[in-house]
Amino acid sequence: MNSRREFLKLAMAGSTAAVAAPTAASAQAKPKRWGMLVDLRKCIGCQACTVACTIENDVPEGQHRTAVPVYELDGPDGPSQAVLPRLCNHCDEPPCIPVCPVNATFKTDEGAVVVEAEQCVACGYCVQACPYEARFINHKTGVADKCTFCVHRTSVGLLPACVETCVGNARVFGDLNDPESDIRKLMAQHETKGLRPEFKTGPNVYYIGLDDRLASTVAVGGGARDLRQGLETPAHGEV
């Protein structure tokens, strides 16, 4: 079947060969440089991205390539509700890459930080090195895992799963090298910030409306994490 062969060719390009196979368009123009913008004003914290990513990338239970923590912040007019979609920042200076002892992780030509699964020894050094807690050793695959900007989709003309299903249209994915891209235009119109600037990692995930209290380690005075830790304590209710 012809279409099958044609499709497979493309799917292949999406996985192993993505580094060596720039897309037709970028061959002529400036190469693409992927980035993401999250307009926090639009995020409703529905976790569609979280679940879609889990399903699309077969991420095991208890692990996430992207997720949306929700915080209640104090303020002069009372408390308010803050959401913070998080994922790999696909940094310009990714601290996770140089520490890898086996050269299993690298940046693609489009700027996505990825892990070559067969090369990874899963020593966990990159997990330790990431200031964003964006990496983990995948319980199913047994190797270092992280957001790939859905490289298998973005390399075949599709959008990342989290972007496709973002209910608030808060996540904008695009080419940072293209001044006409939606992401660039939004960045030109709004002040944007990245997470943990003190690490000078050059993150390529930008936020509109990011409170400084969320930009670095969040001072948390209690909440869902405490609840989880105390969940098992007394037996309760009839089940």
């Binding site: 996985s15 990338n57 991420v59 995948n138 695959t141 190797v143 859905c150 490289v151 298998h152 989709r153």
Partner: peptide, 13 residues
């Protein structure tokens, strides 16, 4: 080991 390539356990598009 399950994962191959750089996309982890991702579904084919």
């Amino acid at each position: 080991a399950k994962a191959k390539g750089i996309a982890g356990g991702a579904l084919p598009p």
